[in-house]
Amino acid sequence: MVRNEDLENVLLLKKGDISAFSALFGKYSERLYAFALSIAREPYIAEEITQQVFLKIWEKRHQIEEYFSFKSFLFSVTYSETISLLRKETAEKKKVNRWGEVASFETTETDYTVEFNNLELLTSEIIAGLPARRREIFILSREQGYSYREIADKLGLSVKTVENQISATLKTIREKLGESQLCSILFYFLTTH
């Protein structure tokens, strides 16, 4: 049985269901905060970004494409919001030095979205090229939300085997993506459980 709590919650969210919104907020707010913090490096900015993202999600809930990965969508919106806020902060305070190491301000938000989508596509291609069993374990974990224990029970494996397979897959993806700081940041947050 394929579990997709995000899809169920997104469908309810589109109908204005506040409990579905709360469930998505509870599931993703800390991870989005950590993601924004890893880019902005200021807790108050990360907190503001997290609030803005969820406010935007609520306000534009009718426009959400429910059959796309909600998780990827959230991180893409968070990334764009972080860039926008950093641009504003930089214009107001002229603090280019810290952010200049991470990204160029000449790049448009559309370029960031394209870069994010390219990274997601590359990751998908890497996963598609994995041995069948390893790919199945990874998909059950990262895309379908199964715990290591649930995967082990479902496939008749030990939990340690599942852990080793996930670890090997993450290592393969990291190696193939390269050492780019942006790739590392995005990859970490796309694949953390």
Rank of each mutant, 00 (worst) to 15 (best):
M1I: 06
R3S: 10
N4F: 06
N4P: 05
D6P: 08
D6G: 07
D6Y: 04
L7F: 12
N9I: 04
V10M: 15
V10Q: 15
V10A: 14
K14D: 09
K15C: 00
I18A: 14
S19H: 11
A20I: 03
S22P: 01
A23P: 00
L24Y: 15
F25Q: 04
K27C: 01
Y28Q: 04
S29H: 14
E30W: 03
R31F: 01
A34T: 05
A34C: 10
A34K: 15
F35P: 09
A36I: 01
L37E: 08
I39Q: 05
A40C: 15
A40N: 12
E42T: 12
E42R: 14
P43D: 13
P43M: 05
Y44D: 14
Y44P: 00
I45F: 12
I49D: 13
Q51M: 11
L55E: 04
E59C: 04
H62S: 13
Q63V: 14
Q63P: 03
I64E: 13
I64T: 00
S69D: 14
F70R: 00
S72D: 11
S72W: 02
F73I: 00
F73N: 01
L74K: 02
F75G: 05
L85M: 10
R87E: 06
K94G: 06
K95Y: 09
R98T: 12
R98E: 13
W99V: 09
W99F: 05
G100L: 14
E101L: 15
V102A: 08
S104P: 03
S104K: 13
E106W: 07
E106S: 01
T107G: 00
Y112A: 11
V114P: 00
E115R: 13
N118C: 07
N118Y: 11
E120D: 08
E120A: 15
L122H: 02
L122V: 10
T123S: 08
E125T: 04
G129R: 03
L130R: 10
R134S: 13
R134C: 03
F138D: 07
L140N: 08
Q144M: 11
Y146A: 12
S147Q: 01
S147Y: 03
R149T: 12
R149G: 03
E150F: 11
I151G: 12
D153W: 09
D153G: 07
K154V: 05
L157S: 07
S158W: 03
S158N: 09
K160C: 08
Q165I: 02
I166P: 07
L170H: 01
T172K: 09
I173K: 04
K176E: 00
G178F: 02
G178I: 01
S180T: 03
L186Q: 09
L190R: 14
L190G: 09
L190F: 15
